Simulated scan of single mutants.
Amino acid sequence: MRTLGFVPLLTHPDASSEKFVMNAMAVAKHLDADVYAQCIYVDIPDVSNAFSGVLLNVPEMIREAENKSRKAGEKLLEAVAKAATEADVSVTTEETNAPPYGIGEVAASQARYGDLSMMEWDTAGSSARVVAEEVLFSSGRPVVLLPTSMTVGVIDHIMIAWDGSRVAARALADATPFLLRAKRISVATVLDEKPIDKNIGERLALALQRRGLAAEVLTLNIGGRAIGEALQAHALEFGAQLLVMGGFGHSRIRDFVLGGATADVFNHVRLPILLSH
Rank of each mutant, 00 (worst) to 15 (best):
R2N: 12
F6E: 08
L10T: 13
T11W: 07
P13Y: 12
D14C: 03
D14K: 15
K19Q: 15
F20Y: 14
F20L: 08
A24Q: 10
V27A: 13
V27S: 07
A28G: 14
L31I: 03
D32L: 04
D34E: 09
V35L: 06
Y36F: 14
A37G: 13
Q38F: 03
I40H: 11
I40V: 15
Y41R: 08
V42D: 12
V42W: 08
P45W: 10
V47L: 13
S48R: 01
N49C: 11
F51A: 11
S52Q: 02
L55E: 09
L56E: 06
M61H: 03
R63F: 09
R63Y: 05
E64G: 07
A65I: 02
N67R: 15
S69A: 09
S69K: 12
K71W: 00
G73S: 04
G73I: 08
K75R: 11
A79Y: 01
E86V: 15
A87H: 12
S90R: 10
E94T: 07
E94C: 00
E95R: 11
T96L: 14
P99G: 09
P99R: 07
G102P: 00
I103R: 11
G104K: 11
E105P: 00
V106D: 00
A107G: 07
A108W: 05
A108V: 14
A111N: 10
Y113W: 08
L116Q: 12
M118A: 15
D122Q: 07
T123A: 13
T123R: 15
G125I: 07
S126R: 12
S126D: 14
R129F: 02
V130R: 14
V130H: 04
V131L: 05
E134A: 12
E134K: 14
V135R: 03
L136K: 01
L136Q: 01
L136S: 02
F137L: 13
S138K: 15
S139L: 07
P142A: 04
T148D: 14
M150T: 09
M150A: 03
I155Q: 09
H157N: 10
M159R: 02
I160D: 05
A161C: 12
A161Y: 10
A161N: 09
W162S: 05
V167Y: 04
A169W: 04
A173F: 10
A175N: 02
T176G: 00
L180Q: 11
R181Y: 03
K183H: 11
R184Y: 06
I185D: 08
T189V: 14
V190A: 11
D192A: 13
P195G: 01
I196H: 02
K198L: 15
A205W: 10
L206D: 09
L206F: 07
L208V: 09
L208P: 08
Q209R: 11
Q209T: 06
A214F: 02
V217D: 04
V217P: 06
N221V: 08
N221Y: 09
I222M: 04
I222C: 09
G223E: 15
A226G: 11
A226V: 03
G228I: 02
E229G: 00
L231D: 06
Q232D: 07
A233T: 09
E237N: 04
E237G: 00
F238W: 02
L242I: 05
L243M: 10
G246Q: 03
G247Y: 01
F248Q: 07
F248C: 03
S251M: 04
L258M: 13
G260L: 01
T262I: 01
T262N: 02
V265I: 08
N267V: 00
N267K: 14
N267A: 12
H268T: 09
L274A: 05
L275F: 13
S276C: 12
S276A: 06
